[in-house]
């Protein structure tokens, strides 16, 4: 299949970037989107030009590295699918495809399609954990956890930290990411002791990183490769409200 790509090229955080057009005469429908970019890059290198920089690693939709804005949708048109799991068969012969980086003030561009998502790490560092040191744990079956609770915790824990929620949100809000972690730990008995301070700490870090606020657009869930539900955001709001009222520290 024949395609025309419009790819964002930018040599550094402070350089001006622009969309550059590339023709792909011979993409195969069975290629993954990243393999298609590999082919483009191989040709660029052979011509002595610099390849398009993009983050990727596992190519199995689990590491959260890949982060492409494809035709105005993070990770492209296919729901619940990361860029690396998107296959060319989802496009038509002759399509024009726009490829841009995830954009947000909190995700500065490093180069081309590569952005700095370390803000997410700092949100987790603020409280996205359970404070147990190695060796201090009781037997794993000491605390029974209902299957339902474990399953819902898993639904939330499935987040791969890709940042598509931020990229999709008109406000560049990180609510879905933060809510996913707060909910994952909040569903489990082990997560209760720190639950209130966790919500307060993670939200204030999230605000510090200058992500936008949530106005409940719902674009984040639609773009999320793991389809983390909006309900998680409601849970975060609830925990935050509760923490403010009961845990006035």
């Amino acid at each position: 299949m024949k395609l025309t790509l419009h790819v964002w090229r930018q040599t550094g955080p402070n350089e001006a970037g622009r969309l550059v057009t590339y023709d792909v005469p011979d993409a195969s429908p069975d290629m993954s989107f990243l393999e298609m970019l590999d082919v483009v890059n191989e040709r660029l290198i052979e011509r002595g030009e610099e390849p398009i920089a993009f983050d990727h690693d596992c190519r199995e939709g689990i590491c959260g590295s890949c982060s492409l804005m494809i035709n105005g949708v993070p990770h492209g048109p296919r729901r619940g699918t990361a860029s690396c799991q998107l296959h060319m068969r989802t496009f038509q012969d002759g399509d024009h495809i726009w490829v841009e980086p995830f954009r947000a003030r909190a995700f500065p561009i490093v180069r081309d399609l590569v952005v700095d998502r370390s803000a997410f790490d700092r949100v987790i560092q603020a409280g996205g954990f359970i404070g147990v040191s190695t060796g201090s744990a009781p037997d794993a079956n000491a605390i029974p956890i209902s299957k339902a609770a474990a399953d819902r915790a898993m639904d939330a824990a499935a987040c791969i930290g890709c940042g598509a929620c931020v990229a999709a949100c008109p406000n560049a809000s990180a609510m879905l990411f933060t809510a996913a972690k707060v909910s994952h730990l909040g569903f489990l008995p082990q997560g209760q002791p720190e639950r209130m301070r966790r919500a307060l700490a993670m939200v204030s870090q999230m605000d510090l990183e200058h992500f936008g606020g949530c106005t409940n657009y719902g674009e984040c869930t639609a773009a999320c490769p793991k389809e983390i539900p909006l309900e998680m955001i409601a849970r975060l709001n609830r925990d935050y409200l509760k923490a403010t009222l009961v845990a006035r520290d």
Binding site: W8, G212, Y217, E219, T221, A222
Partner: peptide, 19 residues
């Protein structure tokens, strides 16, 4: 004010899905 500054550079192409 916050939300308008949280994405300084706009996308060339945006496709709203659910909002």
């Amino acid at each position: 004010a916050r939300n308008w500054t949280s994405r300084p550079a706009r996308y060339a192409k945006v496709a709203h899905q659910t909002s």
